[in-house]
Simulated scan of single mutants.
Amino acid sequence: MDIAVNILMTVATAATPLLIAAIGELVAERSGVLNLGVEGMMIMGAVGGFGAGYLTGSPWIGLLAAIALGAVFSLLFAFLTLTIATNQVATGLSLTLLGLGLSGMMGTSFVGLPGERLPNLYIPMVTDLPVVGKLLFGQDPIFYLSIALTAGVAWFLFRTRTGLTLRSIGDSHGSAHALGIHVIRYRYLAVMFGGACAGLAGGHLSLVYTPQWVENMSAGRGWIALALVVFASWRPWRVLIGAYIFGLIWIGQLHVQAIDLQQFAGMPWIVYKPIELLKSVPTQFLSSLPYLATVVVLVLISRNKRLTMMNTPASLGQPFVPDR
């Protein structure tokens, strides 16, 4: 039971950065902006969070630095796509490449250094409860923030007037502009929120998931977060479910690689053989499972045109230049 609890806690830790980054991107896309630079903003948040945490000795300051760096980095994308009206796809890809290169340069002096880890929550007696204690009351603070962020975004988008305005901009920026809504202002704020979330997700990687700095440590999570938004049909609670499915795949393949067959030698054939078969799968294939799952999900979603178009913001990825 203890092993199962530890695995589930690890799944939650692995799913948290995916969830936070995807929720931020969901808000940006609901406003009609397609930001493919999530990976770049995540890795910048990771290096900024680790660096600030290491230099100050406070992981909390590191998290604030990660959020700020992600938001500032997203402003570059917002300026290029919203003010100058460059192509959003090309600009997002350039932002990712810039983030990967810049983070490698910034993090050179941090490689191999021990990091400051954000401590897990501990409530006397409550956290010590069997099974549910650690799962519900012994996680890192960002785990709880990610759940609150999901609930807050769901409430904001579908229960507030401002959220309705944001969704209307994503569905028809021309009509929203005709009604006197400041489209560019809303989109700037949405993109900055997405950048702050991506930075926080990166900070979680370097301050909680693996408290150290390793070049390219985001390992494609930004792309998975982008796929999660489509997988969830732009619905926050579906993003939560999708993030934990991908987290389970991510951690599951690591545990499969670490299986010791000798522990199962005395078990019945029906148990031993499937485990032996899993163990014989090449580790390279197991490591690619999260990305393979992303491709499979996108292919399955694309087959259902009605489901895809039902919630897709109609103005997604389209540049908007207000009348002069």
Rank of each mutant, 00 (worst) to 15 (best):
N6E: 13
I7P: 00
L8R: 05
A12S: 11
T16Q: 02
T16R: 01
P17M: 03
G24Q: 04
L26E: 00
L34T: 13
L36M: 14
G37H: 02
A46Q: 02
G51T: 12
A52W: 05
G53C: 13
G53H: 04
L55S: 10
S58N: 15
P59V: 04
I61P: 02
I67G: 00
A68S: 14
V72T: 10
V72F: 13
L76N: 05
L76I: 14
L80T: 14
L82T: 06
T91A: 10
L100F: 09
E116P: 01
N120W: 02
Y122N: 13
I123K: 11
I123N: 11
P124T: 05
L129C: 09
L129M: 15
P130H: 11
V132D: 06
K134R: 15
P141A: 07
I142W: 01
I142K: 02
T160P: 08
T160R: 10
G163S: 09
G163L: 04
L166G: 00
I169A: 03
G170S: 07
S172T: 07
H182F: 08
V183F: 05
R185T: 13
R187A: 04
A198H: 01
A201G: 10
A201S: 13
L205T: 07
Q212K: 13
Q212V: 12
V214L: 13
V214E: 08
N216D: 15
R221P: 00
W223L: 11
I224F: 05
L228Y: 08
A232F: 07
I241L: 15
I241N: 03
A243Q: 06
G247V: 04
H255N: 12
A258E: 12
I259Q: 06
L261M: 15
V271F: 12
V271L: 13
Y272G: 00
E276W: 10
T283W: 05
L289Q: 03
L289E: 05
L292Y: 00
L298N: 09
L300N: 11
R303L: 14
M309G: 11
P313Q: 07
L316F: 09
F320A: 12
R324Y: 09
